[in-house]
Write a protein that binds this DNA or RNA. Structure first.
Lengths: 269, 269
DNA sequence: GTGTATCGTATCGCTTGACGATACATGTGC
DNA sequence: GCACATGTATCGTCAAGCGATACGATACAC
């Protein structure tokens, strides 16, 4: 399940070339991060050479950085001895990121309450330009696949939370995000035409929530609403996802939409 | 809720002093990681000076590293303008860490199935010496507090999963971990005496699962079982947690223990 | 007001530590 | 057997990270 389309693809130039004139830029630090980022979109252990290529450094640098990151518990050898994998200490940073995020802090109790009312999947996702990242996930009975992981990202333009966020942005800004997205269809129903997407966004703006059917996953219906910061800008979204085998869109909307909108506004400030 | 007792507290020496003789060690990379790690156990934004102190570098180095990490999306300014916070890109690394972990890969479908049967909280935690780290969490109806975050860590010696893991280790190794743990009581019922803990561990070894009551959280009962790798070593644990207001220990054990043990063995290899 | 803390940012020589080429032991697959 | 991977180890060079210092804001004390 390659997700590379969701990430900025660095140019072909050497790492940090664009920072050549920045006197505060620390190249080694950036290289270390590049090594960790080498695993994005990859589906197994990576060898030194692969890491070097992905991070755009030479094998020697990769060797040194991998060694360093290994002693720090951020990388480990794969169990079968072939290549390297991310290690547990990385989870500590993610944990800091989540627990220190004021939105996550405020959202958690509200989401737990919401989860108690609707017995469907409840998620919080954080806005990151062309994508939204799942920060907390609360499963329903169902769920088959393993997209249940925290840190998973989906495109802003076709997710319910993303559409709700776009609706809360100035029109021009929202359109810019849609247009610079890759818009590769994830299902046959994924809407990829910017004009149509913007129509849906306008509708979401009118309603106060976004309804999305099967644009990310076949058989899934989702409703999302934006969470705003004190300046009124959207920074995250609550969404609830259900199965079309159990819900008609009308029934789902009638039951879920008010609760999602209320939760989002309770978290906003 | 300070969790510092769970982490290695670096000495007072300058960072990397112990690596002085290591020709492969990259100091800048380590410093960058130290800056990110400065947020462990802290409960709000950090200023440059605070980061510098926590990472044992001077303010100039902190300035450069924060600047670099900021341009890479790993740090951001706090919304109120006072200090810095971890930023979203950190979640990408955690996501890689989880999705590439073979144990997590194998565990997820089993845990979802388990969650469907027992309507209580189901967690997977990964073994990291004196602590275990929650990798995936599946909530129950209840849940009040916000310890629901991925990346959260609890001491090995007093968690159900941790005890099950200790039981799967050689006796001496298990005892060593218990003895080098801090063993600060988390509740009045937390058992801190190594000998008593080892008795419980022996019992867990006999039963094939570990039962723990209120040693981490008042009112909580949990049963954990160890997951082993191909070499037979414990690397993770499944656990199910319920409320003592709804279960007697006997009923909980009778209903849950077989399912947890079965799930753990299905994931092991 | 004024003084004194911080805060984050900017600049600049010095020299140390990261750099990359190279060599090596080992293992895997034609 | 050869060819080509893998991860690891060594070493001289010089750029890049270092840390001291200065700066404009902002906040709080009195």
């Amino acid at each position: 399940m390659p997700r590379t389309f969701l990430r900025d693809t660095p140019g072909d130039r050497e790492l940090g070339a664009e920072h050549a004139e920045d006197p505060l830029f620390n190249r080694s630090a950036a290289r270390a991060i590049a090594v960790l980022s080498a695993f994005h979109g990859i589906d197994g252990p990576m060898t030194l050479s692969e890491i070097a290529r992905a991070a755009r450094i030479d094998r020697s640098a990769a060797q040194r950085l991998v060694h360093t990151l290994r002693t720090l518990g951020h990388l480990k050898r794969s169990e079968d001895g072939r290549g390297f994998l991310p290690d547990l200490r990385l989870l500590d940073h993610a944990h800091d990121c989540l627990r220190l995020d004021p939105v996550v802090q405020r959202a958690t109790p509200v989401l737990l309450e919401l989860r108690r009312n609707v017995r469907e999947r409840v998620d919080l996702s954080l806005f990151d330009d062309r994508r939204v990242i799942y920060a907390t996930r609360m499963q329903s009975k169902r769920e088959t696949f393993f997209a249940t992981l925290v840190g998973h990202a989906v495109p802003t333009f076709c997710s319910s939370g993303g559409r709700a966020i776009l609706a809360a942005l100035p029109e021009a800004e929202a359109r810019a995000i849609v247009e610079r997205s890759e818009r590769a269809p994830l299902t046959p129903k994924t809407e990829t035409a910017p004009d149509v997407i913007m129509t849906r966004v306008a509708e979401a703006r009118r309603l106060g929530y976004a309804l999305v059917c099967e644009e990310i996953l076949v058989g899934e219906i989702a409703i999302g609403a934006a969470i705003r910061n004190s300046a009124g800008q959207p920074v995250a979204a609550v969404h609830v996802a259900g199965s079309l085998s159990e819900w008609t869109p009308e029934a789902f909307t009638a039951r879920i939409a008010p609760l999602v909108a209320e939760a989002a506004s309770a978290i906003s400030r």
